[in-house]
Amino acid sequence: MTATLERAPGTGPAAGAVRRLLTGGFVSSALLAVLAVTALTAQEAVPGIAVPGPLVEYGLPVLRVLLDLAAVAVVGLSLLPKMLGFDDPDRTEPVMRRARPLAVTFAWAWAVLALVIIVFQTAQLNPGVIPTPGMIARYVDDFGAGQGMLFSAACALAYAGIGLLAVRFGEKVPAELRIVIAFFGLLPIPVTGHAVNSLWHDPIMISMELHVMGSAAWTGGLLTIMLLVAGNRDLLAQVLPKFSRLATLALVLVSVSGLVNGLASLALTQGIELPGALFGSHYGLLVIAKTACVALLIPFAAHIRFRLLPRIAARQATAVVAWAAAEITVMGLAYGLAVALTTASMT
């Protein structure tokens, strides 16, 4: 075998720049969005009431967004074997051999972040005090948000364990198992956000879960394909059409469930009138901003789907990575806004 064939796809010198473009755009846009919104929506000081210091005020949203990004990476890397297929291990195995350790690393990051977030949440509750183990235990005991994070951390750890088995034994470890555990870890995360108390609580929670899973599959899938598969035209021609169907489904799911959640949460909160609250509250403005992000994603996604995909299927060179990088940057923005939205004030 020649060196070029032996080399795993996406390891050339140009691939480094591509990787930096994709991950850099994703991470920095998410962080910028969440920091900007946190700074803009910072609560005015209330006299006589202690508020958490800036470390907690800014640290907590940053950690939350990093957790989301790690979870997105884990979900994307778990979906990869399903998209690559198992029929042609000679071609797909080099990609998977890079994907599996990456998935374990990100699952680790996810678990550690979730545990650190619990500490920060406790600190947010007790301003001016460094949380003791007793306070943290009490927090987890008392609050669904703490239990949710703990559950998420446990799922991430379980994923890391099974991911390690996959590193060792390859695709003998079922891909479905990894996908299910990754999604399972995502499910408690909406519990840590806003919710409404009404008859519609359960439908809204389900819609929220679908939103979280849909966006993770969409973003994670695109990111992983662009990072690990885009360098190999044959594989890309095989994988991208499959992913495109998933992405179309995710686009519909994410936008519909997102609108339903945002509007229903506002409509069902006492003392809030639609549509005035849409423009008058931080929550409403963030819902609008996220809708704008999705609207912005559609042209990118459509360009890749309708213009580039036929040429990719014909194994021609395309600028798909650049387009995907733009799309992923907007997705990062939406993730940043999403974290800010979970705690934004509705009035």
Binding site: G148, E176, F183, A195, M205, I206, M213, T269, Q270, T347
Partner: peptide, 29 residues
């Protein structure tokens, strides 16, 4: 893919029962 979807649906159904439902955000009225 269909098998995967089924598994996921069951997983969600199971979890909906397990996770304590999120309570709402208080608003001063």
């Amino acid at each position: 893919m269909r098998r995967l979807l089924t598994v996921l649906l069951f997983a969600c159904a199971a979890l909906m029962g397990v996770v304590t439902p999120a309570q709402a955000h208080n608003v001063l009225i």
